[in-house]
Amino acid sequence: METKDFIESGILEAYLLGFTAEDEKEYVQNRILTDQQITDYVLDLETDIRLYFDQHTIPPPPEIREIIQLRTTKRDIQKKKHVFEQKSAEEPKKKDEYLEIEVNDTYIKVHKFWRPAFIAVFILSKIFLIAGLYYYFKTTSLEQENEKLKLEIQNIK
C-alpha cells in the first residue's frame, strides 16, 4: 500500500487508539519504523489526539489521588519485599561474611586468644609471688641463724 493511501486508510488512528488486532499492530509498527512520512504523520496525529481529549478533561475528586498513592505504595512495598526475599535466597554466603552489629555497652572487647594468655600471666605471677616470698623468708631465717652463730662464736671466745 502506498504511503498516502496507508495514512488515509485510518489504520494509524485505529492503531493509536487501540482498536487494531495483534497482526495489524505489527504491520503498522513496521510501517512506522520504516517510513519517515508515516512517522511524521503519527507524531502530528498524537498531538491531535492529545488536544482532542484535553478538551474533555474533568478534574477528579482530590481523594482519588490519595487512594492511588496508597495502592501504589502498597504494591511497591510488596514488590520490594519480594525482591528482598529473592536476594536473600540467592546470596546466603554474602550475608554470612558481613555481620552488622550495633555496640552499645562500656566493655572492651578483645580477641578470644587473649584469654589463655591472661590466665598464663596470672598463674606465673602467683608462682613468682610465692617463690619471692619463699626466698625472702628463707633469706631472713638464714640471716637470723647467721647472727645467732656469730654470737655463739663470740661467747666461746
Partner: peptide, 26 residues
C-alpha cells in the same frame, strides 16, 4: 483529569468512573 474525562465519556456513572480511574493509575 484527561483520563477521568475519557472514562466518564464511556461510563457516565461518577462512582464507577472513579473506581476505574484508580484502577488505571494503580
Amino acid at each position: 483529569a484527561m483520563a477521568y474525562g475519557i472514562i466518564l465519556q464511556i461510563v457516565p456513572q461518577p462512582h464507577l468512573a472513579q473506581e476505574i480511574l484508580v484502577n488505571v493509575f494503580a
